[in-house]
Structures are given as C-alpha cells and as structure tokens.
Design a binder for these strands. Sequence first.
RNA 1: GGCGAAGUGGCGGAAUGGCAGACGCGGCGGUCUCAAACACCGCUGAGGGAAACCUCGUGUGGGUUCGAAUCCCACCUUCGCUACCA
Length: 861
Amino acid sequence: MTTTGDIESTSDGAPRDPRDRVERYQPTAIEPRWQARWADLRLYDTDLDDRSKPRFYLLTMYPYPSGALHIGHWYIKTPTDAIARYKRMHGFNVFLPIGFDAFGLPAENAAIKNNINPRDWTMANIEKMRGQLRSMGATFAWDHEVVTCDPEFYRWNQWMFLQFLKKDLAYRAVSPVDWCPNDGTLAREQVEGTDRVCWRCGAKVEKRELPQWYLGITDYADELLDFSGIDWPEPIKAMQTNWIGRSTGAEVAFTTAPSAHHAGGEELRVFTTRPDTLFGATFMVLAPEHELVATLTAPERKAEVDAYVAAAAAKTEIDRLSTDREKTGVAIGADAINPVNGARIPIYIADYVLGTYGTGAIMAVPAHDERDFAFAQAFGLPIVQVVMPPDGDPEADLAAAFTEHSPDEVMVNSGRFTGRKATDAWGEIVDWLGEQGKGEPAVTYRIRDWLISRQRYWGTPIPVIHCTDCGPVAVPEADLPVLLPETVDYRGSGDNPLTRDEAFLAVDCPQCGKAARRETDTMDTFIDSSWYWFRYLSPHFAEGPVDVDLVRDWTPVDQYTGGAEHAVMHLLYSRFFTKAMRDLGLADAREPFRRLFNQGQILGADGERMSKSRGNVEDPDALVARYGADAVRLYLMFMGPWDQGGPWSAGGISGPVKFLNRVWALTIDPHGREPGDQTGGALPAGEEEHDARDRMRAAAHRTLRDVTEDYEGFRWNTMVAKLMELSNLLVRYRGTSVAGLPEWDEAVRLLLLMLAPAAPHITEELWSRLAEARGEAWESIHVQRWPVVDEAAIVEQTREIPIQVNGKLRDRITVPAGISEIELEQIIMARDKVVAAIGEKQVARLIHAGGGRLVNIVLRG
RNA sequence: GGCGAAGUGGCGGAAUGGCAGACGCGGCGGUCUCAAACACCGCUGAGGGAAACCUCGUGUGGGUUCGAAUCCCACCUUCGCUACCA
C-alpha cells in the first residue's frame, strides 16, 4: 500500500493534486481480470456429490437467446448471484446453473428473413450472451449449462411425452382452439386481455377447429390448489388459484318436456353453485354449440335457431365480448322440467353460456344471477325471488339480481324448503336430489388441459406417426430422438416447413409397417421450461431425462427467482410437470420450487415497458463499460425494493459509483485526505480518540447485524444504504488519528466482506491488496466465512430518549443506558421544555414505551 | 365487473404501533483549483420567525390508541392479472 499520511509534504514543490499519488479505482481494469481468475481457479464449479456441506439449489429463470441481454436480465440475475455468494460465505454448497430457452418463434422468423437455419441464429446469440452473462461477474455453474434446442435435451421431452401417452396424460382431441396467425395454436392461458391477443406476438387470436395434442393438467387441478409447504408470493398463489378456478356445486338433471315435435324425457344436465336457488329457475339456457340443440328445436323455430348458432360459431370470442354484455339469444321452442317442483320452463340458446364450461347448459335464476337477470329483462321472462334477507318481501320486484349468500338469508317460494336458512338448505337439496337420482355434488374447474401442439418448425417434434390404418402411433422409445431436419426450406413463407419436408414426413408405421406420415406439430416451448432445472443436475445423462439420485439430493429447488409474468404459465406448468414426473418415479418432491421470489420489472425512462420499437431500451454493456459491473449491480440493488422494479433512470448511478470510490480510497489510503477537506485531520468536535474507536466498532457490528438481516430478506436497497452509512462514518475518520487503528481495520474488513456478494470484483481486488500489505498469501474474499456479530461491541453506554407530551415530541435527553425509570422521570420532569409543554395541566401518567426507547407524558383533560 | 399490489419531499425510496423523510439523486452555499471537472464540508418537506423555536404534513374522510405513514371502516387514484366460468 502506498500511504504517507501527510499531504503537507507535497506542498513545497509545484502544486499538484494530492490524490494523484494514490491509484484510482478503475473497474474496467479490475473486473475482467478477476473474472478470468475465478474461472481459472474453477472457484464456482459445484461438486454435486459433496456431502460435507449443506446443499443450496439456487435457480434463476433461464433467458431466451434473443441476441442480447437487457437491463432486466441484470436486475434479476445479479442479486441472485449475490444470494449465491452470500450463501457460500455461510458454508453452503451452492448450485447456481444457467442455460438457454433456445426453442421458439424469433429464431424461425430470423430464419425466414435471412434464409439461415434457426439453429445457427440461436447458437450465435447464445455465444454472445454467454459473454454478457460472464461480464456480470456472476458465479454460474457453466459446466452444467442446458440448451433446450440440443437433441440431448429435447429427446427427453419426447420420451416424457411417450410416458404421458401411456398414462393417458397426453391425448389428441379435436376441439375449437385459439389460433394465432404467427404462433399457431395456443394454450388457453397463452391468450391475453380483453381483445384476446397472443401472449408472445400480440396478434389477435381466432378460433379454429383442429385435432391437437393435450396434456392432462386438469387431472392435477386439486393438487395444484394445494400450496402447503412452499413459500411463494401470495399474489402468485392467488392468480394460480383463480386460474384453476375450482367451483363446488351440483350437477342437476332437468328433463325435457314432451311437445308436438319431441317425446320429452331426455336428460338436460346443468351445473350450478347455487342449488339453494333451484326453485327460482324460470328458464334454461344452452350454449349454442350444445349437442341437444338440434334435436330439441321446434320446426317453426329452426330457421332462427340455426341462424343464431351459425352467427355464434362465426363470431370469435372478441365479437362475443364486443356486444358489451348485452344479452342475445333465441328460444328453441322446447321446455324443460325442473326436478324440484316439476315446473315447465322454456329453453333458450344464448352465447353467454359457454360450451366449454360445466355442462354447457345452465338453469337460469334471474332473481339471483346478474347475467340471468339481464337476460330475463331483455326477453321479458319471469323473475322469482327464492332467497332473501330475513326482513325482505318475497313478492317484491327486484331492481337487480340479489346475489348475497350469507348465513342470514332465508329461502322463500321454495316449497318444502321455504323458511329455511339458505346456506343450510344448500346441501340438503343436493342430498334430496341425489336420493331421487336427479343430481349429485359436482366440482368444475376453469382450467383447461394444456394444448401443446404448435404448427412451427423450431421446437421439439411430437414423437407420433400417423398411419391410415392404425391411427396415431407413438414413436418407439428406441427410435428417439425424432430429430429436427438440419436443412429447412422456408420458401419465404411463414408455414411450418416440416409439412413440406418429405424426408422427415415419410416413415413406416411402427405398428403395421405400412407407409405412414410423421406428426409435423412441435411442442409448446413451455414444455422445455417445465423441467429444465432437473436436467441442470445431469445435462449429459444418457439413461433418462434425469439422474434420479441427484434429483433426490438436490430438489426441490431451494430458491427460484424470476418474473411474475409467468404466474399461470411457466410457474403452473412446472408444478404440474413435477407432480407428473413424481408419478413416473422420476422425482420425489411434489413441488418444484420451495421458495419463489418475483422481482419487479425495469421499465424504460418513460415508464413504459422497454422495447426496441419504443427506443427506451437500456444497454447494460454500455453501462458496464462506463461504470463497471459492480456499480451497475449495486445501482440495480439500490433502486428500490427488488419486487418493485420501476422506471430506469441513469442519473442515480452516480451514488453507487461514488460509494465504491470511497470504499476504494478508505481501503488503500486510510491516511489520505481530500484536497477540500476543512476538518484539518481532526476528529469531530467533542470526540476523543477512544470515543471514535468505540463508535467505529459499534457501527461496524451494528451494520453487520442489520445487513445480515437484509441479505436474508433480499432487501438490497436498505442493505446498500447501511453499507453507505458505515462508509460515510469511516470517510469522516479517514486521515485522522484513528485511521489505521485496529478498530478501523476491522471496520474496513467487515465492510469489504459485507459488500463482497453484491460487488464481487472491487472487494476481491481490495481484499487481495490488504493481504499483500500484510504480507499474507492471497485467499479469495468469496471463500471467506461471513463474519460474526460481536453483540458486546454494539452495546452503548448512553442512550438518547425522545420525550413526548400528549404524543408530540417536545424534548430529547441523553441518559446512561442502565438508568431506572424513576431516575429517568426525575430528569424528564425537571427539563425546561417539558415543564413548558405541560404548563398548567396535570400529568395523568407517564408511558415508557418500546422497552425504554421513548417516554410519553399524558396530561389530564 | 372480479382478484391482487400500491399511494410518503423536486425524484428513487426508508421507517409496518413509538423521533416521519434513513440512504441516494437533484438543488443551493462553501473548500480545493489559475479555472473547470473530480473530490471534500455544510444546508435542503411546507409555512412562520433574527434566532430559540412554533404550526402544518405520509391519497381523502372517519375510527381505535397515551401515541397511527403503520391497525380498523368507507371512499378516491394508479398499476398488474382476469374477463359473461353459471
């Protein structure tokens, strides 16, 4: 270290900046050097078989290789790296893998545009992004990298699909599906917003009737509602719960009434969550696509009904909604019979009843359902109140549907149930229907099975062969992987080129041996992300998708970090896959991620989502080149709470930059003083050397205690603030007589250790220089143990106590720490300000609050 | 419409029943410098006052409490998700 401690000695020569004699902080010189050194030493390779330390599987959502990292990647990944480093300093064997979500449409679009293979485009991007990820100084276990477009990975997508087929967890069905002109078919949860657009490309989605492959996620609906044993953010659990949408109720069998054109007696089942309102059903509504519409429609109504059905079928969901909830429908000229009272009620079709939910038919109870109420009003249908508050009028005209369903409500106009509490009667009615074989308890879900077929090239081929005789036949496991053809003929079109690739298509049926055709759909890329963290453990394992022993030791993941935008997609699929894999004996945990943290999103300076088209994208490479990775890491952590995100503003980065410069100066030049320093190297007024030494120790250990808590809770912003506070104190003592004393050295050492996980390069550099100055051998700061708080150092001799009168701050006194309440009260009551604030009033009592932290004097009157 | 999150200085934010505004940005004044930049020191919620201090102040209105940014009730605003789910 180069320190002389005496700046006056330079002043007799030509005037010059005294700081020039000290080396300045140059992050761009330091950072690549340490990154290379860490890599050479294999400092962050994880030995997964090491049983001497507790394991910690830290996972962060893998990036899509779009071509460049953006600041959002830094926002999630650098604090995650800080967690890894912090946990290592606590003796954990930390596994922090990284990989690439390498299948997907952008590669295909690039291929069409530039007439190159999507693989080449993808792999070039990956190579570039690897370099960018390294520039973060993050401790990723690169030797476990997974790239999902590698056959070594996607063959196991195919293998698992075959296992799912055997268990009927994968199946093919023809049904109306959401079709995006760019991405092909989409799963239900991949269509967003009121105007029904594709989650990825934003194009409007239309309905198509197609044969498609599904995974039976609904089989696991109930288990997916159980979040016990995992520590996830409440909003995500709420979103998943809403998405799964479990409704308990009953299926009730209405029957068709005999009429001129129909014999009657046919069952019409409805699902209801309100069996207690059965007596109020005044009509019935079928979805236009309901299978019985054709047979039940009266001849004279046929033309109108057919027209309505055709119109509904032609309408996309967009159009259905654009009618702004105005109810439309047509009576079909047939009646149904209500099983509870034998009432004949007319049957309508209306598009507000969905064919895909429940039974596709409802009993309409206009008095107690807003939609039914609106329909009844529009069509002049009777409205009969059957549930009301205890003081209600059963014959009153309702202005709106009465949907309250609390223990107070009583039933009216309901035959033998009249006068009963509605909540009590709910179950009895279901039981009563059950005894007569006219209904039973039922549960329905909003969630649909996961549609995984995509009409795209750049994905995992679905391992199925279509034979004219045998139908769809699974590719034998021995024939896996079904490889994507290397050369692709796009002919400038956006179609799936597999459909034109005769070499790919032509194959013999594995069952009968006749000429057959391969399935050309590929899998939704969310399949890849549904289990990639299992593969990280053994990326080259050839005997199966996962090494079951490693999975047992290392999963579930201890901590997962990533965005909340995947709440009902990736984060739900992953839970499903884990449970399905468990049932295949591939995993033994029922949940994938023990703890989940959703960071916020970094927006552009304009407060909008960052996007190239808006021109508000912040380039992390440029920031790193200018300020260094440590400053960028620290600034992102310092911005605000991690789960909050917020608009980017480059201005604030100067704070962390200045902080790092001070840490640098404190460490390599403790005796130096800045040229404008007006303190003359003196301690703060009234402070003796021993006071200063105590203060440094106390501050360092109090900071350690608080910062440790902040690390545990991922509260980076306050963590950085507290380190800044400590460094501010040391800056004040720099160049004074206490700089360089043991308490100073300890405070600097603790400051570096506490900062190390967040700013790994500068701390490593300074740590090495401290070792060098002491003539010790270098040992990385990142393999040091996290320091231990000395509670004795924090204990203070005196305390400052705020004094309130009637809750208003009136005075502050400094007293010895161990003072008794009686002594304290004597001092307080003698204070001028307190006496003045009390005035003529009487003191009612004194409150010693918060364990002696504050005193409040309460006055009478 | 439903579910969820959040409203605090000029700005990002801290404080989750006990001193509101930690820490930082920006701003103002000073030191250093021939000068500027950097760096360093001080001030910086609003109003009043020469000052000591006083009053007001955490979206709005009420409530609980000795004491409320924090807890409760009602409302307003913003953001995210959802969208006729019977």
